[in-house]
Design a protein around this nucleic acid. Sequence first.
DNA 1: ATGAAAGCGCTAACAT
DNA 2: ATGTTAGCGCTTTCAT
Lengths: 350, 350
Amino acid sequence: MEEQPRTRRPSSVQDIARAAGVSVGTVSNVLNNPHLVAAGTRARVEAALRSTGFVRNAAARQLKGLPSAIVGCLVLDLSNLFFAEIARGIEDRLEEEGCIVNLCSSDLKREREEQYLRVLQEVRVRGVILGTLDPAGSGLRDLVARDIPVVLLDAPRSGLPVCAVTVDNLAGGRAVAEHLLAQGHRRIALLDGGILVPSVSDRITGARQAVLARGLDPDQVFRKVSLGPPAHAGTPGPAIDAALAHPDPCTAFLCYNDMAALSIMLGLRERGLAVPGDVSVAGYDDLRFTSMVTPALTTVRQPTYEFGRAAADLLFAEGEPDHEHREVLFTPELVVRESTAPPGGGRRSR
Amino acid sequence: MEEQPRTRRPSSVQDIARAAGVSVGTVSNVLNNPHLVAAGTRARVEAALRSTGFVRNAAARQLKGLPSAIVGCLVLDLSNLFFAEIARGIEDRLEEEGCIVNLCSSDLKREREEQYLRVLQEVRVRGVILGTLDPAGSGLRDLVARDIPVVLLDAPRSGLPVCAVTVDNLAGGRAVAEHLLAQGHRRIALLDGGILVPSVSDRITGARQAVLARGLDPDQVFRKVSLGPPAHAGTPGPAIDAALAHPDPCTAFLCYNDMAALSIMLGLRERGLAVPGDVSVAGYDDLRFTSMVTPALTTVRQPTYEFGRAAADLLFAEGEPDHEHREVLFTPELVVRESTAPPGGGRRSR
DNA sequence: ATGAAAGCGCTAACAT
DNA sequence: ATGTTAGCGCTTTCAT
């Protein structure tokens, strides 16, 4: 029956000042420089603050030029556990600095990436951690031109004055390819997502290097097949056909990530093909559960949580006065499990 | 050698006005009510807009009372694919309205939830989609008291004037438990994450109902064991011991989610125990890959992407003038696979 | 059709 | 130690 004790509209410093019988300046000082205000006054103001449930207006602070607590983070695909875990690493680190993350997923759409970047600029984020489709794109250049700190996520800096955290994709691609070649595979389906992602391109380059190192011709060894974007990962049929329904069928799939590899394995199973008996499958990322599927997936381990934390670290470092742009490079690690084996293991499928 | 073509500091409407030889009001009109301004003037202003790469200042707009384009979204654990997919559903829907999401993960920490809620208020989000640990918490009540639209994610509304999107956890819990009971299990380890999550509590209640419906005593049938928070999911040993190293060992694990179930299965395997030969394991969520592990996981399917979209829908509906708070209820579905079987199947492990 | 000016909530510089 | 005030960038009356 009583009046609502808390005001419905958030109270302003004005309201607090009135309630405590002081000026707005004093309220501001209680908020930001408590030591400047006498104990008694401070107590009165604090009481008013509490009783109205005052909440700072971030927009007003920002308009005064104070740094925003929001950091933008744009990843390629949040439904990929790999990025979700990176995001957690980022978030944990930001939280330590009282920042929050504006997390967006471009879903591998260029247009969407550009749109998000625009909105992030409008809200004047403190910086952005960017997993970009286009390391030479205008969105990124815009950010840089406006002096917004940028940390690239697993993408080359292409000469831009930004920081980056990357993993050695060349080495990773080389490692899986070398593994497959060593097992004797000479026809390998190179599975991509139909969209050219910088890090994946590097892995492919690495894979080609491995082939060249053996004196073979990459164009002979690899056959490019596409799974289509993640949304289509449920229908691996066409990709499988492209690789196998061929006079000279592939004996192995080198997949651009674990999710895709799993999808391929599922499709293979549905067709009655055994892995690795009939065809080998290698993934990339080493997601948490890849050791539990059957057969356990051969893949390449990449850092996730630590990767995210490193990115956030770099972003804060960017904030410092005269900072050198740095690139932190992580090293991937081949994890050989059961899904790859020499070709021609044959018809022993159960 | 040339001057940088784009200003480093983002240009303001003032700058544009000056450049185009008009007043700020006109610039604002070009931006928001283009039809009110003469074609010629408009063209001049638009040229200036483009040449400086003008970006609105969201803070200033907001200060004028315009609605924010930012929607807060707080989930329990982003490293759980279940939430990551929900987040994607939310994001997709928001994007359609030109909004972006401030995605945070409380990591099941109450303190962190409260902190995030505070920051979200400071930035005056347009609303918040909240997966809360505490549906009766002060953070949530605060939001409501301030008329900030709230949509609860899989949590009871407890009488608060908010919307909610939920799944029938009672039914879900009942279904798995009934399945296990029907197979003959009479000693079941009820695995939780050590933290009381509302939705999980409901599932447990549902499971107990199933036991009662058979005229059995839930306290006899269930033995509570804890895996600890997600971060500890890597060490399922203690939970396994608690369930099995007992004069009357459990014959099945009813796990609070798939990630936990996988972790338990891994631990079981390390101890040389066969699933489901020696012990059955049931999960919850039906994450994308649970059908691919060995043995394929028996679990309960929950909507994810659609769940997220529904939440975002509700949030926008909240914005409408005089809106009725609604609750959207999804129905879970038991998915029986290979990881559960009648007890005593025995030592046939290979 | 356009311009002038007030004011959103806050901080910081200055005045008392 | 506290009060006063200008101004951040924008939208929106109200004049012209």
